[in-house]
Design a protein around this nucleic acid. Structure first.
Lengths: 223, 223
DNA sequence: GTGTCATGCTGAGATGGTCTCATTATTTTG
DNA sequence: CAAAATAATGAGACCATCTCAGCATGACAC
């Protein structure tokens, strides 16, 4: 049926029009104050029509967020692909994440608004998983090249990574400050020192002294 | 006026009754689904009366949250006061924070729901400040005893501290897992390695080898 | 071109919540 | 104990989401 295709594409266009109108309105006003009537108006359709495409306001919001996560995940993958050393990949990912989160903090707050107190809907959970999988891949690769420790569950460094960045993003946004330097550098440094390969057994100061005295005796020229 | 006191205390009792009914209902149902009528019912008063004490539902929620933050801050101060070594204070604080946040995650989600996209109300900001000030005090004390580096802005370690813990709390809650061990230990280790005093210049492996060979010659008994 | 059918769209109104305020009850005061 | 001041009530104003009976549009047969 030729018309079927046409019909479908018309229908898809409408869906998109609603989605981008919704995106605008949600960002401008937040979830509560967003009016379906206004979204319909901007999409050029009646209020009731919005409900033909998205059952409820919450479902519409979820669709908007799904779009957002998808884009973010895509970008994160592209970013890490431009580097090869694990620490540099992490640095790039951290930079990308911080930038994106600061830019789209309103979105994340909207996401938080949908979260039920005790649970998260499975779709959102999957999207979040897909996003953090970018970090996981980098870290795993780093383990296999010996750049990172392998004696910890993966989620421990992951939580430190995303937790620090998200909290910093919020701090920065609340201060309404320019993005300060040092956040990413410091995080990478912390990573290197904490999750880098186990340091060669560190020498006690006493031992070092004993060694130095002994060496002095048999070979007084400095190393 | 003797009666004035009585009136005030009666009034204060009502306020408290509303507040604790509200606390219950908000936790059970979340912000949106909480019904003022239900809060009134549990406080033993009419719906309209709730509005005499709290102008709007949002204001009521803010009052509930203020209570929560106050208790958390109090507990954090008490907890750190039971230790003296900076790292042990941080460990205790981390443990307290993680426990509290996991227990009261629904509250934090409610708090997130009130947050406007671009701003935070000054009162909430002050309460948050008061809470993180507990960390700040420990860290500052640690700097003055030489336990921590002083070449970084305070908010960098602070964001890593709270960011990691909050993200971990969420991860743990979403997995519906028992609280795993290692989160706090790992954070403290990362802190020590990243923010502890600059390590004594580390010895190169070559140098260590040379020292060991030399010692072997003059003193074959192991250290 | 026109009748028939399927499908899409509409917006008035049902529903259900927050919040108001005229009225009623209670407490304080002289 | 009457009068004045204060507190509490709950019916209903108001305004949002969401529904659904009816209207518009376009494909197809003839």
């Amino acid at each position: 049926m030729a018309d079927n295709g046409a019909r479908n594409s018309r229908s898809a266009e409408r869906r998109d029009a609603i989605l981008s109108a919704a995106r605008e309105v949600f960002i401008e006003t937040g979830f509560e104050d967003a009016r379906i009537a206004e979204i319909g108006r901007r999409a050029g359709i009646a209020e009731g029509t919005v409900y033909l495409y998205y059952k409820t306001k919450t479902v519409l919001m979820e669709a908007v967020l799904a779009d957002f996560w998808e884009g973010l995940t895509q970008g994160a993958g592209d970013t890490t692909a431009r580097h090869s050393a694990p620490l540099e990949q992490l640095r790039a990912l951290a930079d990308y994440h911080l930038t994106g989160v600061i830019r789209d903090l309103p979105f994340l707050d909207l996401a938080a608004k949908l979260r039920k107190a005790y649970s998260i809907d499975p779709q959102t959970r999957d999207r979040l998983r897909a996003y953090v999988a970018v970090f996981d891949a980098v870290y795993q690769a780093g383990i296999s090249t010996g750049a990172f420790r392998d004696d910890l569950p993966l989620w421990i460094p992951r939580d430190m990574f995303y937790g620090t960045l998200e909290y910093s993003a919020r701090t920065i946004a609340l201060r309404e400050a320019e993005r300060p330097t040092g956040v990413v550098d410091n995080l990478i440094q912390a990573f290197q020192r904490t999750y880098g390969p186990a340091p060669t057994e560190s020498l006690s100061e006493a031992l070092i002294e004993r060694l130095e005295r002994a060496v002095e005796k048999i070979d007084p020229t400095p190393g």
